[in-house]
Design a protein around this nucleic acid. Sequence first.
DNA 1: TTGAAAGCGCTAACAT
DNA 2: ATGTTAGCGCTTTCAA
Lengths: 329, 329
Amino acid sequence: MDRRVTITDVARAAGVATSTVSRAFTNPGRVNQHTRAQVLEVARQLGYTPNAAARALESGRSNTLALLVPDITNPYFAGVIKGAERAAAAADLILVLADTQENAATEEQLVRRLGPSVDGFVLSASRLPDAQLLEAANRHAVALVNRATPGLASVVADFDSGTRQIIDHLVSFGHRSVVFLGGPPESWSGARRWAGLRAAAEDAGVTATRFGPYAPVLAGGAAAADAALAAGATAVVAHNDMLAIGVMQRMAHRGVDVPGDVSVVGFDDIVGAEFCWPPLTTLRERTEAAGAGAVEAVAAQAYAGVVEPSVRVLPTQLMVRASSGPRAG
Amino acid sequence: MDRRVTITDVARAAGVATSTVSRAFTNPGRVNQHTRAQVLEVARQLGYTPNAAARALESGRSNTLALLVPDITNPYFAGVIKGAERAAAAADLILVLADTQENAATEEQLVRRLGPSVDGFVLSASRLPDAQLLEAANRHAVALVNRATPGLASVVADFDSGTRQIIDHLVSFGHRSVVFLGGPPESWSGARRWAGLRAAAEDAGVTATRFGPYAPVLAGGAAAADAALAAGATAVVAHNDMLAIGVMQRMAHRGVDVPGDVSVVGFDDIVGAEFCWPPLTTLRERTEAAGAGAVEAVAAQAYAGVVEPSVRVLPTQLMVRASSGPRAG
DNA sequence: TTGAAAGCGCTAACAT
DNA sequence: ATGTTAGCGCTTTCAA
């Protein structure tokens, strides 16, 4: 569609060598100000843009980062994607997006396939075992979102504080026991959520029980709700908002009042947590900041030679809405 | 992080010329079967992957497509992204994602910045004027999603049928007039929605009025709802689901019963339309198919030399839920 | 069927 | 400060 203008065309038109043109673009200090201005002007007139492939071939760098997410349509990851995209754009980096379909094998394959073309990876909610993560980090710059592996850069939500906020909130409503409706067993953040909940419950002197695993989607709510009701739970905390909303739907269907009979709390604060019925009390994570922070961490490794793996913990905030209330009875 | 294995390494190890290795990979027919098998085996052992940049330099092709969306966090685009990603992966193409922030200037800038590195663009809900779109298509392979411009490939939802379904549905409930709560004036699909609604209303002998524009987000619902109520509307159709849900929130707040007093219908069927309160009657579009179709169209242009701009119209389906009902009074 | 060699566009020594 | 030149890894004529 477009006959490309090369550095040679510019050099010829400006009456200089190609190296001078190259320097005018990438090494402003090492070329005469006047020459530089003239070269840039000629380049502009000709509509010259440096060929990224040629640069990449030379430098081994593509100025491209890849972001892998388990499921693009899960609203939770929309924030991560947005933050990552923004940070990449700010750093003049190109962001490649891929969907792992909640599947470790697909994820591994994508890392292999994309690896040669990108300078680094942001792996969000990775399903890969630690060993494979470390192997990937051996070959590429890597940063994790909501997953921590010793030796790797990561950005995670502060689940310790978050789960404590949840327990405190429920305790303040008089609840003496909570049921955790767990998600996928391989989910690192799921494990952290449960661990935090259990610890906070113990500190507060209330009991915490784990049910599940359930699929962390709307449809998973039916089984989860039924189990919770059968156990006589008065307060349930779901693995994520989609599951929590599914639980509330099932309860409504069964004539159980939320929060009159049972309080429901979620994790994520997805779009929709605000307008589902009743509006969901849930732990908000700073997903955009997480995506942006991970991109920055990868860029630091790939371009600034930073080796020390940074671990950032982002604050969480309990959004108290109408799905939680005083203990029944 | 990784000492790269080049074609030369493979050639040496296999005792053949680099050109033979190259052919073994890209031109299976023009190399001895036995030689080829041996070369591939050696390559595998060495962990060789062709360098994409070098290929791109030679061929001028990056095997990369760019997808531009107005707002990544808008659940509507999640489906488009997913479909595009899937189609790209199936065609062994890399997908670059960028957010235009609902902004024509940003969109134009992204096309310029990404242009040299990608083989084509999928522009979804583009805010660019026709002239700029045509100019972009002059330089790159382009396909549009939910936007049509003469001469360009596009995938659009069947709003003619969709708006007719909406009107028929409301008429069957006895409604004699509908209010359309409009979105951004530059929105092509917004214009199509209104045009379809008006035509269908006329055919059905009911009146249609347009209000707005309103911001197509939850917060836009307050002003939209107030205007509709002031006008005594009994049936409103909102530009999209987010606005529709915002409208219902405002009505609930003002003690107006949906659908008892007012029926509310949206467009998109986003995640959440199903679990908002009341569940929203809305027109479902096949967003994933749209994203996938657009990628296929761009790929056909970029790699198969297809010039005839394909226009695909995807069916829409009215999801009747609880937000619409018999006309009041 | 295979090999030798010439670039693709750019950057980075190395000269001048 | 600028020009010359040698590749980066790969594909592709052109010969053999």
